[in-house]
Design a binder for these strands. Structure first.
Lengths: 234, 234
DNA sequence: AAGTGGTCTAGACCACGAA
DNA sequence: TCGTGGTCTAGACCACTTG
């Protein structure tokens, strides 16, 4: 017997999603009390489902009046993405070339003063390609204590996946710092694009669910092939 | 007699914030039931307050175990920002120079195929400075129907503020599309920086609470003086 | 005045973690 | 097993919009 795995509010949200898709923009949605009765649930749960739809930008709500179908939007909320997932979304075939992978000690210098080592860590430098074209150069630092046998893994696979499946470390949230740069000679060579091209440098710190740092990375992304879309709320 | 304006969950969150600030990282926070009893509130409300703290990255929660103080983070969640607010945060004095402001018709061409006019709209081109140094060039399009007398306003002030206070149109959310570019001769002249500098172009669409588009803009931001920090969640 | 969404309550049951 | 957080209920009252 299959168990009911999904939270009620999610199932309700999905039901409402299809129902809403057949309405016109600014059409009213049935009241919360009516929905609660119809689905045999409490009003709180209905409200949670509606909140999900609101986060997706499908509906908007006016206090004292009702909820209504919102005009369609193109861009979805920014989410934590792995390279592999991003490539799939864009319909490109992702591949990875490992340039170097080594253990470095805490007294060695690091790029950029972004990475300051307090203990021995692995440094993995990889070139990321989509349909065999270089799109991004990534340098990742992971403390040895986080993933002791990292160098034995297949580093052409997703580092996130390795961290999660082999070491139980899941990247749950991340801080990113984004700067526009110009590709210099050195990068141009590695990435096989002309020097002087526009690009973006992203410095990133990844945390697990407990808010502990488990990864730092620097990635250089080719500007002609990368762009960033996101939406923000007040 | 002053009315109690603030939602209980917000007051609770503030109380807990100060309480948590005196604990050490990974220290446990009292259980939800205990907090509910202590503050004479229901557990639901306590949970809402804790959710606020979790969004701020102050605590993390482990199912079946408890809630704990999270390690400190530098970056806060990305929010919808006006230029003026951003400058204040960085401690710079914001000023604005209006380059041009005019009504254009729907048959005139527009930059970039980003802006496609379906009705007459105002085009406002402004240079934004921090401590008198040019930081950003902004071209904003606002439909005439949204703000009929826009050209009579003081356009060195915040457009958002004008839209809100004079026309009751508040920008509630926005989609942004970000691309790295290289400053060309034309931009170099206006912004008084060398051609070939790194920069970021942001194409932005602003919406009101009903999800209706009220503004489009293109801004060119000098890369040496601008960067973007944000955090993301799975 | 009536109907809507916004906030809050008191209590129930479930799923998970630690001892 | 017991205490914790996670989900849900039924119902109350308030704030707001609309006729």
């Amino acid at each position: 017997m299959a168990k009911e795995e999904v939270r009620k509010q999610f199932r309700l949200a999905d039901l409402l999603r299809t129902e809403i898709s057949e309405l016109a923009v600014h059409d009213p949605i049935p009241g919360e009390r009516a929905l609660a009765e119809r689905f045999g649930t409490s009003r709180v749960t209905i409200r949670q489902a509606l909140a999900l739809l609101q986060d997706d930008g499908l509906i908007y709500t006016v206090h004292g009046s009702g909820s209504f179908v919102a005009p369609p939007r193109v861009v979805k909320q920014m989410r934590l993405h792995s390279f592999t997932e991003e490539m799939k979304q864009k319909g490109l075939k992702p591949t990875t070339k490992v340039i170097s992978a080594q253990l470095i000690n805490d007294d060695e210098s690091a790029i950029d003063d972004f990475v300051v080592l307090s203990e021995p860590a692995f440094r993995v430098e990889r070139l990321r390609l989509g349909n065999l074209e270089p799109l991004s150069l990534e340098i990742t630092y992971i403390n040895q204590s986080v993933a002791p046998d990292l160098l034995k893994e297949d580093l052409t696979k997703s580092l996130y996946h390795i961290l999660k499946s082999k070491y139980g470390q899941e990247v749950f949230s991340a801080d990113e710092h984004l700067t526009p740069i110009i590709i210099d000679q050195e990068y141009a060579k590695v990435m096989k694009i002309p020097a002087g091209s526009p690009a973006i440098k992203i410095q990133r710190t990844g945390y697990n669910a407990r808010g502990e740092e488990i990864e730092r990375s620097i990635s250089i992304r080719q500007g002609n092939r990368w762009d960033f879309k996101y939406s923000i709320r007040i």
